[in-house]
Nucleic acid binder design. Structure first.
Lengths: 226, 226
DNA sequence: ATTGTTATTATTGGATCCAAAGTAAAGGCT
DNA sequence: AGCCTTTACTTTGGATCCAATAATAACAAT
């Protein structure tokens, strides 16, 4: 298992988002370099990248520290993804859904149906949903004729809790997660419908609501019999 | 007038956005380093930062090139700013406008009034408006209790044409620019009103429309007698 | 002549070295 | 004894060196 294959950036990103460093902790170049078994140079490069991504922030005049996120930050990050993906969906609806994109979206919707049709969720299904989900969203984002929106979303997704596939939190309560995915799948189908019919405003609003699934839905799904 | 004071990042950012390099042009580390009179190291660091900012992109497997932007990119970048600032305005309206923020916003609104009340525009006024404008927007963005939205906006603003003060384009037709600023000022007042009264949806929509001033308004202001 | 292979060159990535700047610590002065 | 100053040390920024790799050019073979 060659560990040095992965770039320093992604290794650090992983370490940070998995809590390998405490929030607010100051990161020294030498310390991290030794820990990762590389020299200071790649670490210095990585720090700049991670600062731009928002995972690190400057610690006074000296070096960087792990950025700490509040509950409000999490909420905002999810809303940011919502409005940005909403923008993408609206534009796609407004400028007309190309046939190839339509087919792609339908393909991933179908994949989602197949995954959920057995009526329950196995732990192994989670990665597969993640795949399906990111393809569905990616297809929309990348079909609006400009990479600017996709870039903005990608940058936001660097915040670990903001990424679209952070829906899955609780692997213990697979029944509830199944309900969540069922709802997400339904959202996908609604969004496709709206985009297909050129209903920009509806597509945008559906997408914005869709983003909130991971945020406020858990309690509701508990209590309603849905 | 020490030129090496400014960091390599900002010098390069300026060079790129002012067209010092052709879009699509490939940038070599050594060439740029020599041009700026520094070693390769700070240039390498800067390239990573500028890549994250979206001004550079990877050129195949080797190095970076100046990213080129289409008309669609410009349009999207402005809309991205619109939805993000719209989100900020909505949240501020929803969670209630704190008194200090209210006073700050009123202060900059007043400054705007004073700048425009003489009924015409001098070239020297442009920088002042830019100042007023960024303070107004900044106050909203930074008052929602999380830096995530502000960060996303800041990253988007790195695209030179997306920044909020890129309203000013035409210094030749100051009469038309005056009309534009008058309208922008009016928008500011409307947005404040909406936020003040907790009208989240209205505040959001006004802000989104406000972002489009630099994009589609020129022709209209020409023809309507407004 | 064209294509495939090889060799040379250019350019980037990583490591190390040196200088500059900041921080902490120790000692002296009031 | 407390505070200020000076000194020592830690840490980062910049430059240079070496190695790895991609691009290019040259050469050979079909």
């Amino acid at each position: 298992m060659n560990d040095s294959d992965k770039s320093v950036v992604s290794r650090l990103r992983k370490l940070i988002s998995e809590g390998g460093y405490a929030p607010g902790e100051r990161l020294g170049e030498v310390a991290v370099a030794e820990q990762l078994g590389v020299s200071r140079t790649p670490v210095r490069l990585a720090f700049r990248t991670l600062e731009q991504e928002g995972l690190l922030q400057q610690a006074g005049k000296r070096g960087f520290m792990v950025r700490e996120f509040t509950q409000a930050d999490v909420h905002c990050a999810v809303e940011v993804r919502g409005v940005l993906e909403g923008l993408a969906a609206r534009r796609l609806a407004e400028q007309g859904l190309p046939e190839v994109v339509s087919e792609t979206l339908l393909y991933w919707i179908q994949k989602g149906r197949e995954l959920l049709e057995k009526g329950f969720l196995r732990e192994a299904d989670i990665n597969q949903w993640s795949e399906i989900n990111s393809h569905f969203h990616g297809s929309i984002i990348n079909s609006i004729g400009s990479g600017v929106v996709a870039d903005a979303i990608a940058r936001n997704n660097h915040l670990p809790f903001a990424a679209a596939d952070s829906i899955i939190i609780d692997t213990d309560d697979l029944a509830r997660e199944f309900k969540k995915l069922q709802l997400a799948q339904f959202h996908h189908e609604l969004i496709f419908q709206a985009v297909k019919h050129g209903e920009g405003a509806r597509a945008e609003m559906l997408m914005r609501e869709h983003a909130l699934i991971g945020l406020r839905y858990p309690e509701l799904l508990q209590n309603t019999g849905l």
